[in-house]
Design a protein around this nucleic acid. Structure first.
Lengths: 187, 187
DNA sequence: CTCTAACGTGAACATGAACTCCGGTTCCGA
DNA sequence: TCGGAACCGGAGTTCATGTTCACGTTAGAG
């Protein structure tokens, strides 16, 4: 898809990076709500420059999200190194959620309804999913996760926790309830 | 707060109702995304009429949400009738979530960050919270919910489930995991 | 050093959606 | 039936934001 694109001029590459940094920080803090002018100002550039590097706001957002997903994949790979399957799972889960907490744009991309514009990210997402699947399978195999636990369930609980990251919600508490169940002793 | 406001003229009352119905249905289906012109058209009225009855879009939305909350409170009261504390809790939980599933505007109001504009609803919300608190306490007292379960946790798990109502998420599955915990037999 | 393709700029433009306004219409008490 | 206060309508206004474009600037090959 992406044409070979011969190397950028030095100033162009520098500015592209500046845009990515500025946008990354702002999106992380306030999600989709930040506006292009703001990003440009923060990067010390004109709006026009943003549009030279990214077709539109979606594309910029997608670039940022893609970047995060790569970091996430690396994190997942590291988690998978753990010998103990449960440790691997827990590491993955908390790593994922801590990233999500630190990045509103990331949450936004994952919580919102499926948008076709995230297609650029499909590859990175697939990588991550593959590792997640392996980790989940390991934990199930060792009897540390309930037998019918699937990779989809990871998405489920993850979305649930993220929904408790805005306002007064306490996502760690939410996870505790999930891990231990909410029922009392009497059955 | 609300002034006595002498009775509306017959046509005004009729139209107000039409607006509420149209807005209710549209908000329920598509949440905050519907636009005023659409609501007006659906109600068979001009936009001006909407603004005669409601100061702005927020106010209209708040009116709708308030209405839903009253229904919710009635539902909670009914759930509290059950002798079995667990049945009461489960009835409340599923009743709440089924309403949320049927109403995007309701979800929107509960999932989004706290907005000051919901203040009109504070009363209805308080009523509902009081009943929820009683039901939770009953279930905890009977040992059917873990001892440290609080009313806040109801909000937590409820938000979690609602986050799995858009797209492919399966909120019932999410609840099952919560109720039973996600761990396997090996500890 | 020179020349030019690539790049940067930001005022101007395009778009969309909330909201206003006032002439025309309707209800309803007397 | 009649007068006027209350109400309705919907084209037009306003505001916010994403996006473009004509022109000035600069990197970097030759």
């Amino acid at each position: 898809m992406t044409a070979p694109e011969r190397a950028l001029r030095a100033d162009a590459r520098r500015n592209r990076e500046a845009v990515l940094d500025a946008a990354g920080e702002l999106f992380a803090r306030r999600g989709d709500a930040v506006q292009m002018d703001e990003i440009a100002e923060r990067a010390g550039l004109g709006v026009g420059t943003l549009y030279r590097h990214f077709a539109d706001k979606q594309a910029l957002l997608a670039a940022i999200i893609g970047r995060r997903f790569e970091a996430m994949t690396a994190m997942a790979r590291a988690a998978d190194e753990a010998e103990d399957p449960w440790v691997a799972f827990e590491t993955l889960l908390y790593g994922y959620l801590e990233s999500a907490q630190a990045d509103a744009a990331f949450r936004f991309a994952l919580l919102g309804p499926e948008e076709p514009s995230w297609n650029d990210i499909a590859a990175e997402k697939t990588d991550f999913s593959a590792i997640t699947e392996r980790i989940v399978r390991r934990a199930v195999g060792a009897g540390r996760l309930r037998e019918d636990f699937r990779a989809d369930d990871f998405v489920l609980i993850t979305r649930g926790a993220m929904a408790n990251m805005t306002g007064a919600g306490d996502w760690r508490r939410h996870l505790t309830l999930l891990l231990e169940g909410i029922r009392g002793p009497e059955r």
